[in-house]
Amino acid sequence: MHALECEQLTKVYRSGIRNKREIRALQEVSIAVESGQIFSLLGPNGAGKTTFVKILLSLTHPTGGRALVLDRPVTESRVRRRVGYLPENHRFPAYLTGEQVMMSFGSLAGVHRSALSGRIDQLLTLVGMQEWRKVKVRKYSKGMMQRLGLAQALVNDPELVFLDEPTDGVDPVGRKEIRDVLRNLREQGKTIFLNSHLLSEVELVSDRVAILDKGKLLKVGTVEELTTTESSYTIGCQGPLPDALRTEADARVLGVTFSAEGVVAHVADPAALNAVIDLLRKHGVLITSVTPQRSTLEESFINLIKREIPS
């Protein structure tokens, strides 16, 4: 089952009265997210990530396309009883205490008052805010606001949670705690939709990742799929490599570099990889492994965005 599904989602902002300027924030984006996954949306500033989430929460109206959340159209307000949301740069009413925020927004989310107090206790403990519950939020730090925001997003025990930059302003220990909360939610079968700039964080928790740039969906896949460099392989070798091998490899322009771990082959296709392996065997080299090279998510992300710049 899909927790959310959208087809050809498009959003065009128009500004100016006489010379109407068009900004294409989303261009025919189609994404489906399976239930029980942590799905992350990545992209540089202005890529359209927040617009995408806002459409799914009915904060923004799409110009075209179709979007379903938990199998219901996003315009149905009732479906949001089953959804939680932590907006980026959220502002809770400063005159409320943490507990009052939870009580008020929990009631607005449709949670019965009798069920709320137990739930609030549980969530404030989970995010480490129990001792601050009676303090007005105007006295909270950025990190504390994020923790409270996360608790607020979970107050209605949602099936699907949208988190926009959840670790923004949170210290490293707090980030680890938030990651643990997310993993725990996934174990409970919840779906988490994450918007984040922190690629290393995303890499640690996400099941699937989508990359968005200038409103276009560039790639969707698992972290492994996105970080695997298709054309580079590390070939593990035992013993020293003969000089004749180096000379022949250079002469035949096989795209081979030599390192302490063995040989790194930069090849266009499997046939070229096999040609390198044949060469190694011809020179009597004992091959112990052939591993596709992996880059970090950050490297893959930057490479993908750079490739798109000329277009």
């Binding site: 479906v79 907006p87 502002r91």
Partner: peptide, 10 residues
Amino acid sequence: GTVDLYISKP
């Protein structure tokens, strides 16, 4: 930041 919190509720 405020309106988002309200409208995302049912």
